[in-house]
């Protein structure tokens, strides 16, 4: 039995320890905000926060999660920080097809929580693990710059 915190509640699962967190989230907990793009840690669509650090849920065997605190886009969407990101991504046109967006939002949170006023270069490094095939990234960078301004004090 593996026990960890998921979006604020303690959960237990008897799934085998090598099951990927991504599969556990989507299939056992029906949290389908985290997406599978590449399944190899290169696209970032499955990003979640583990103990407040952004990680690829496709690379995490759930056995490694014992005692950790996992937050997915579903849990994060209940925070005031999310509200700012939601608004700024919409305003800047940082969302088109939306597949990369949950992961992009999680990577943005990880960046801003460490560095509330990042430079453009730091923003690009912060989202360097997240692929977006629609926006060309510039609008996402704009969205994050806007969020850093608007959310001043939140992060």
């Amino acid at each position: 039995m593996i026990k960890f915190k998921l979006n604020g509640s303690v959960v237990e699962t008897d799934a085998p320890s090598t099951v990927r967190l991504l599969d556990l989230l989507r299939e056992e907990f029906e949290l389908i905000g985290s997406k599978e793009g590449c399944g190899e840690g290169e696209c970032g669509a499955c990003s979640v926060l583990v103990d407040n650090l952004v990680q690829n849920s496709c690379l995490i065997p759930i056995g490694a999660l014992e005692g950790t605190d996992v937050q997915t886009i579903e849990g994060y969407s209940k925070t005031p920080q999310y509200q700012v990101l939601n608004e700024c991504y919409a305003t800047a046109g940082g969302v088109q097809c939306g597949f990369c967006t949950p992961g992009m939002i999680i990577a943005t949170e990880a960046l801003l929580s460490k560095n509330p006023h990042p430079s453009e270069e730091e923003i690009r490094e912060g989202i360097s693990g997240n692929l977006c095939r629609c926006t060309g990234y510039n609008m996402i960078v704009d969205a994050i710059q806007l969020a850093a301004k608007k959310g001043d004090g939140l992060w």
Binding site: G44, V54, Q55, N56, A107, G129
Partner: peptide, 12 residues
């Protein structure tokens, strides 16, 4: 490290 791995990989 900054050049080879994005934050999510750095954390694992």
């Amino acid at each position: 490290i900054r050049e080879v791995a994005a934050p999510a990989i750095r954390n694992r």
